[in-house]
Design a protein around this nucleic acid. Structure first.
Lengths: 245, 245
DNA sequence: GAGTGGTCTAGACCACTCA
DNA sequence: GAGTGGTCTAGACCACTCA
């Protein structure tokens, strides 16, 4: 992604101002996820700038994956719904061959009080109510990943187990469809750990098996954190994949 | 990065052709790392296209980090030399606070015969000679990472221990300065493992301590793999950091 | 003040999609 | 064939760097 920092003189290029206006419209939901936004020509008329300036604004939005462009068809608000990949940010791959199908099994779903650390990471109030979701992800039917997901009460207050099940445990689709929360990016911290007890049991391992622990914070518009997730991965036959440019 | 795929009709936009010409000049070393390439206006004249078309080509090269643009100064061939960060692709951070200074200690440096797997990953011939470098990375002086690095004989044939030491173990700078090989991107596969013996000893740990194992393939121009690296990281107080957009 | 990259415009034309 | 995004041009002007 290209980065353009604001100058000390306070100069902000026109296309950046336009980008802001379009982003605002995206955030307020003027155009729904998956739906087209107005054409470049229409937006140029609306904002009284040239098509090129609108293009430059939209190009940045596309590189941030806020919108998706399709030549000949239009520009669409990005969405986790109807995506080909069920778990779009999942970085785990089998050592051999591609990741084919991942099954998700809900273990349980509780109301909790957010502890101090979780609350801080979610910019919520410590002790306020939230949710804890526990589940297993099973590529090709084999349980490889155990996950604990913590959500703030706001905006997820009216959630039920069946809300999750209706979406086949595809949480980011669910957040979007049920709560209008679209996950834009995630930050992860990865460690190697030894764990005992239930987690190891659930993954069918023996105590003393090393696990990959991935702590994730997921962000929506305005860089607001809305989900915490701790995943324990059995990396005997899988690996966490990453590319650095 | 924006991706533009070639169409089935074989149509390749002009700016893509220009990009290819500039890339070729970068690969053949027409302009040296750290040095400026000709201005956009000069390149436009040279290739007989508009400045805008050259800009679009250079923008893509900049987003791939093949070149770096500085407003008012020019566009420069990217380089690992004179970079602020000593280990540009290192993803390990302390759990608290920023990564300040990393020390590197060479353990040893041997000629080896490349085993079948390493050779395949380096697109070299199995059994051909190569190098094995072993070292420790120590943030704030504490040994946290043990690394084994494998290099093909070509183009690294004339390498000596002092070559490495002269560059303070900053290998990517060394490859560039001594062999004209610039690392452009790396792919990593991360697992949690248990290791015994020397590696654990070197990191001052007990047998049974879980370690993060990072397998890296480093690529230069033309997506050619030129280095294999296996790193074992003590993640007691550090973590592997990643962002997914 | 000369030279660099960065922005913005208006307009032409192209590739692609869909009815 | 109408409408979309994608490319390309020529030209004006702006922000920034450096002598």
């Amino acid at each position: 992604m290209e980065l353009i920092t604001e100058t000390s003189t306070g100069y902000v290029p026109l296309y950046r101002q336009i980008k802001r206006l379009i982003t605002d419209a995206l955030v307020t939901g003027e155009w729904a996820p998956g739906q087209p936004i107005p054409s470049e020509i229409e937006l140029a008329q609306r904002f009284k700038v040239s098509q090129g300036t609108v293009r430059k604004a939209i190009s940045e939005l596309a590189s941030q994956k806020l919108v998706v462009r399709h030549q000949g068809k239009g520009t669409f608000v990005a969405s986790h719904l109807n995506e080909p990949t069920k778990f779009p940010f999942l970085r785990l791959s089998p050592d051999k061959g591609p990741l084919v199908d991942v099954e998700a099994d809900l273990i349980d779903f509780w109301r909790i009080k957010l502890d101090e650390e979780s609350a801080a990471n979610l910019s919520a109030v410590a002790g306020s109510t939230g949710w804890l979701i526990r589940r297993i992800l099973a590529p090709e039917g084999v349980g490889i990943i155990y996950e604990e997901i913590r959500l703030p009460g706001q905006p997820f207050d009216f959630m039920e187990e069946k809300t999750i099940l209706n979406h086949n445990c595809m949480l980011y689709s669910m957040y979007e469809a049920e709560f209008g929360i679209r996950i834009l990016r995630v930050e992860e911290r990865v460690k190697a750990v030894l764990v005992e007890g239930e987690i190891v049991d659930r993954l069918g391992l023996l105590d003393g098996s090393p696990l990959l622990r991935v702590d994730r914070v997921a962000y929506t518009y305005g860089d607001q954190p809305v989900e915490l997730r701790r995943s324990y991965c059995n990396t005997s036959n899988h690996h966490y994949q990453n590319q650095i440019i």
